[in-house]
Amino acid sequence: MTFKAVLFDLDGTLLDTAGDMGAAANHVIASLGLPVLSDAILQCTTSDGSYALLKAGIHAELIEQHGLEQLRSQMLAFYGANLCHHTRPYDGVPALLNWLNLNHIPWGIVTNKPSALTLPLLAQLPLFSRCGVTVSSDTLAYKKPHPAPLLFAAEQLLVAPQHCVYIGDHKRDIAAGLAAGMTTVAATWGYISAGEDPNNWQAAYQIGTVFALADWLKDAFITQC
C-alpha cells in the first residue's frame, strides 16, 4: 500500500487530555458531594467522552434528578474555561509532527471532540499550526464510527482514502478507518477503555508508543521513495 497522508485521533492519541477532562468531570461530581474519579478511572474512561466520565462518578438517581445534559453542560463549561492546564502531547508527538512537516507529508486530525473545544485547544499548542485539516464531531452530520469524517478529511488533503493511515486509541476509530478504506493503527498507549481488547478491533497494526509509531511511519514512507 502506498501512503500519502496521515490522520490522527486527538484525545488519547496525540494529546493526553485526561487531566483537564477529568478536572472538569470532577468539578461537577464534587459539586454533588460525591468522591472524585481516580486517575486510573480517568485514564480508561476519557476516550469515551463526557457522558461516560459523568456516569462513572454519578449514580443513576442523581443523574435523573439533575439531568444528564445539564450536568454535561456544566462539565463542558468548566472544561472550555480550562482547556490546557494539564493537557500535554504524548512523548514523541512533537518530533513526529515535525518529521511529517519537514517531509511535506500532509496530516490532519479527526476527533469526536466538539469544534468549540477542539479549535481553541489546538490554537494553544503551536505544534498543531501546520495541521492540514481538523474534523470535529460537529463538522459534519456524522461522527466516528461513521466513515464520513475520515473521508472528508482525506478529501480536504487531496488524498484518496486508500492512501491514508488513520491512528486512534478507540474501537470507533478503527471501525471508522476500516469503513473508510484506510490503513488503521490502534494506538495502544492511549485511553483503552476498561474491558476493551484492541486485538478485537481488527486494526491492521497495533503500536504501543509514539516513538514506535514514528519508526513505523518512517519505514513505510521511506520504503515508497
Rank of each mutant, 00 (worst) to 15 (best):
W107L: 00
I192L: 08
R88A: 11
L62H: 05
Y191T: 00
S136V: 08
A214Y: 03
M1H: 12
G132V: 09
C225Y: 14
D91C: 12
I222Q: 13
C44A: 15
A52Y: 08
L125T: 07
P149A: 01
M1K: 12
K143A: 03
V6N: 03
D39N: 09
L213T: 11
D215N: 14
D215S: 14
T87Q: 00
H85F: 11
L7G: 08
G168E: 09
T118Q: 01
T184P: 03
L34C: 02
T111Q: 13
G168T: 08
T2I: 13
T2N: 15
T13C: 11
T13I: 09
R130Q: 15
N103S: 04
M75W: 09
A180V: 00
L83M: 07
H59R: 13
S73I: 10
W201Y: 15
L62D: 06
N112G: 10
D11E: 13
W189Y: 00
S31H: 12
L213A: 13
S115C: 10
P89S: 03
V6H: 01
V185K: 02
I222A: 13
R172H: 09
F78T: 08
L158G: 07
D197Y: 02
S38N: 01
T111R: 15
L34P: 02
S73K: 11
I105E: 06
G181V: 01
S47G: 15
A160R: 11
Y191I: 00
N200I: 08
V210L: 10
R72I: 15
Y79V: 09
L100F: 05
L10Q: 03
A214G: 03
Q202A: 11
H66P: 11
A18D: 03
P106A: 07
N82A: 05
H170N: 14
V185M: 01
L213R: 06
F8P: 13
K4A: 09
I63M: 05
D9W: 09
P89D: 07
Q224I: 09
L34V: 02
F221S: 03
V185I: 09
A56F: 15
T183H: 14
L125H: 06
A148L: 13
D169S: 04
V36S: 14
L150P: 06
V210G: 13
H27D: 01
A40V: 15
K55A: 05
T111C: 14
T209P: 03
G132S: 05
C44L: 12
S115V: 02
R172G: 01
I29A: 11
Q162I: 06
V28Q: 04
L125W: 04
A141I: 15
D20C: 14
V135S: 00
H146F: 05
I105R: 06
Y90K: 04
Q206G: 05
S31I: 07
K218M: 11
L122D: 02
A179G: 08
C225S: 13
G22Q: 03
A220I: 14
M182E: 00
Q70G: 04
A186E: 13
N199C: 05
V36W: 06
P114R: 02
L158P: 00
T45I: 05
F3T: 11
V135F: 00
D16T: 02
L32K: 09
E196W: 00
A214P: 01
D169E: 06
H163L: 06
Q206A: 06
F78W: 14
T111L: 12
P120C: 12
D215F: 07
N103P: 00
G57P: 08
G67T: 00
W216S: 01
L42Q: 03
